[in-house]
């Protein structure tokens, strides 16, 4: 069985000196700089062995000037989960380290978040737009994106 979020926080902070986590309604909030270290520990430590990144997406909060990255982790070997990570990024300049070297499954999901939200993932092997075409301006899933009015001819 998976430990509770509180135990999680304590264990992780013991394993990784210098990393501090906060809890928010069942979510582990990780600082952007610690993300790779935490993820590597979660995947490789025998106690967690969270080898499966199920879902990676972003939520935009323009009123609070931030952008949340959301990670849902499960374990295929131990069949437990989910462990939910959140990374809070400044909305004006959202940059975070890529987790693709840890889980290949993040490759397309990070490209999608880059495309639709404009979050830059450092260390991603091939960060290009995936759903929109190259040369498209803007990021359509941001809350302030203005949808073109189809009733008005351009």
């Amino acid at each position: 069985m998976l430990p509770s979020p509180d135990e999680f926080k304590i264990t992780l902070e013991q394993l990784l000196p210098g990393v501090s986590l906060t809890l928010d309604a069942g979510w582990l909030v990780v600082a952007p700089n610690d993300l790779v270290a935490v993820c590597r520990c979660l995947k490789e430590n025998e106690r967690f062995s969270l080898d499966y990144l199920a879902n990676l997406t972003a939520v935009d909060y323009p009123s609070e000037q931030r952008m949340d990255l959301v990670y849902h982790l499960y374990s295929m070997a131990k069949k437990h989960g989910p462990v939910m990570l959140k990374v809070r990024l400044p909305r004006a300049h959202p940059v975070v380290a890529s987790v693709t070297p840890i889980w290949r499954g993040a490759e397309f999901q990070e490209r999608e978040v880059y495309d639709l939200f404009g979050v830059t993932f450092e260390g991603h092997p091939d960060l290009r737009r995936i759903l929109m075409w190259e040369g498209f301006e803007g990021h359509p899933m941001r809350k302030d994106y203005v949808v073109e009015d189809q009733d008005v001819p351009t």
Partner: peptide, 19 residues
């Protein structure tokens, strides 16, 4: 690779992962 790349469904199980 199947586990690492978040593959699911019949494709994952064809590679022998019981999930």
């Amino acid at each position: 690779l199947a586990m690492n790349a978040s593959i699911t469904g019949p494709m994952l199980r064809a590679s022998g992962v019981n999930y």
